[in-house]
Design a protein around this nucleic acid. Sequence first.
DNA 1: ACCACAACCTGGCCGC
DNA 2: TGCGGCCAGGTTGTGG
Length: 270
Amino acid sequence: MPEMPEVETIRRELRSYILGRTFQEVMFLWPGTASGMSSQDMAARLVGRRIMEICRRGKYLIISLDDAHRLLIHLRMTGQLRVYTAPTPPEKHTRVLLKLDDGTEVHFWDQRKFGRFYLVRDENEIVGTLGPEPLSHTWQVDDFIQALRGRRASIKSLLLNQHVVAGLGNIYADEALFFAGIHPRRPGGSLTEEEVAALYEAIRYVLREALKAQGSTFSTYRRPQQETGSYQSRHHVFRRTGKPCMVCGTPIERIKIAGRSTHFCPRCQV
DNA sequence: ACCACAACCTGGCCGC
DNA sequence: TGCGGCCAGGTTGTGG
C-alpha cells in the first residue's frame, strides 16, 4: 500500500518519537512478520538496543541500532506503524509491539500480514538490488533512458519494477504516466527519448507533490498518529474510473496490466 | 536477462 | 443472512 511518499512521511513523523530511545520490550504477536530469523531471536536481539537513526530506501524503513545492526521494515500492502505515548492494548491486527524506554509504544499493525521486519548487519542484503532513488540527484534522465532501452514489458509494469526505479507503486505509476501523456501499455523500449524525459519529470513531480501532501490515503494508509494523507484529492486518474479527465473531459478508463488495475485517460495518453 | 503469473493474507463489497 | 466472486496501494518465487 504505502509507496515512497507515504513511507517517507512515516519516517519523518516517526523519527522524533523514537530517535535516541532504547527498545525495552519487543513482542511479535504474529511471528511471520520476522524474516530471516525466528521472531524470538529478533525480539531478543532488539531489546536493549538504542535507535541511532531512521532512514528510507525505496519503500523500506531502515532503523540503525547502536550495535551496528539495522532493522529494516517493509509495510507492504497494509502495514502501519502506530505511535502511542501511553500504554495501549494491541488491536486484532497488531503484529508487533515495540515498547521504548520512555513509555512510548510503536505498534506494527498489518491486516494482511504481508509486512516484514529484517534484522541485518548490512542493509544491502535487503536493499542492495533496488534501483535508484527517484528524487536523488544521482538519478539522471540518461539512466532512465538506459534502463528502458530494449525492454518489451509495458511501461506500467516497468515503473512498478523496483529494480528500474525504487519507490513507485500503483498510484504514482498511473499518475506519472498521465502527466507524461504516455499510454500505460506501451512497451518500455518504444518510448522516445523525449517521452522518457517527460516521464522522468512527471515521476519527480508527482512524488514531490504527494510528499508535500503527506501521501495518499484510500483505506489503510495512516501516519504514525493515525492521520491520513491528502494527496488522493489531487489524483488525476487513480481510482477515477468513469469520471471526466481533468484536462479533456474524456471518461477515465480502467484496465488490467500485469495483474494490477491501471487507470488512464484514453485521449491524453497515447 | 527478461517477463507473466501465481502465491502470500484478510476483509470489504456486490450480486444472487 | 449467507455465499461466491472480485477487489485491494507490494513483493517473491516459478516456469517459460
